[in-house]
Write a protein that binds this DNA or RNA. Structure first.
Lengths: 200, 200
DNA sequence: CGCGAGCTTGAAACGGATCAATGACAGTGG
DNA sequence: CCACTGTCATTGATCCGTTTCAAGCTCGCG
């Protein structure tokens, strides 16, 4: 299943028939308030599961961020699979547990962190996502942010303007440098990490 | 296992050896920032599971709210149980999914709702917790809030003062009446529900 | 009766939101 | 190749909701 940029493929509240696995590209997951306020609850990419937070109906909407490729598993066939491979059930629970831990951290971010701390945490998340590749280079990490500022704002519970201002401030302070909209270089990993933890 | 009021029995970040089920009383679950800021990520009571958001170490702390009674299952014995009763694994995943849905809604609350909306949502949550008993009485619902204001504040990402002020405002507007600190009566269910959804 | 923890209320400060203008590109068509 | 256009990002000025700081208040309990 290939989903073009910006196309929504899960409607919040619609009956949950399928389970998805993201195999290529990226996807954003969000919930909406009636007046249009949006909270992005996560970004999913290659290998991520989608649809664990669903019983009868989806508790979230989902939309492609760039062109995305998905595998769709109707619930019926998932049940057949878990019956055949009992380990899968365990795997799914593990995945759900991992999600739960992440969401708890994100609740602390949304409920208790300042705008600076949120952005710093966001950058740290993106760095961690790069994997071990960056562990050897403590400074000067290249980062690209595939999502527009609007999505970053809705992910962090801020407005575009605040996101933009804080990133500019980080640049002014020499913590990062901004080549262009999507490409950022981390100049002072340690300090950003400290800000993320609320130590500065 | 009986835990006295205020006693912490899970330390955030400590190695996760056990899985818990709350059998009596109440428990609060939270994460901390180094400088002491706290986000309560949930309250658990009779029948709730505790410890799904844990892999190697706990992603949260937990503390009794009033005297609580728990069943402790070391991970090893959980594995024995899931091996013997394969359905249990499915049950656990279900529970994790339910949690995930709840947390997504709470992220929208923390990231996008105003103080009034947060309190209204909180009241709706407590009402829903009463079960079907209140469905027949659309108005005048008795509610008791077993947790102190500090906990409500840390749960909603607000300060005590704001919680207090908003509740007072609700009272002034005739939406609720406050007998004493822990006992509240819902006077206008519909309007509170509307505020919770962000429609007012 | 008096003490203290927890709650409420008031005044002032502040961080982030909102409103508004400008800037940087990428894509289009002349 | 270069205006033109529209989208997205940045920057500035102001506003507002929530926090912070500082008193009072309530009420259970010794």
């Amino acid at each position: 299943m290939t989903v073009p940029d910006g196309r929504s493929f899960i409607e919040e509240g619609s009956p949950a028939h399928d389970f998805f696995v993201v195999t290529g590209g990226r996807v954003k997951i969000f919930t909406l308030l009636p007046d249009g306020r949006r909270q992005i609850t996560g970004f999913a990419e290659g290998g991520d599961f989608l649809g664990l937070a669903a019983s009868k109906s989806y508790a979230f909407g989902a939309e492609a961020l760039g062109t995305a490729v998905l595998c769709r598993f109707p619930h019926a066939s998932m049940q057949r699979l878990t019956a055949r491979f009992p380990n899968l059930e365990h795997r799914l629970r593990q995945e759900a547990s991992r999600e739960l831990s992440l969401l708890q951290a994100r609740m602390t971010l949304l409920g208790r962190k300042t705008a600076r701390e949120r952005l710093a945490t966001f950058l740290m998340e993106r760095i961690r996502l790069l994997g071990a590749a960056c562990q050897e280079t403590p400074h000067q990490i290249e980062l690209d942010l595939p999502m527009p500022r609007t999505d970053i704002a809705d992910y962090l519970g801020l407005t575009i303007e605040t996101v933009s201002r804080v990133l500019s401030a980080f640049k002014r302070e020499g913590l990062i440098s901004i080549r262009n909209i999507t490409h950022i270089t981390i100049m002072q990993f340690e300090r950003i990490s400290a800000i993320a933890e609320g130590l500065e």
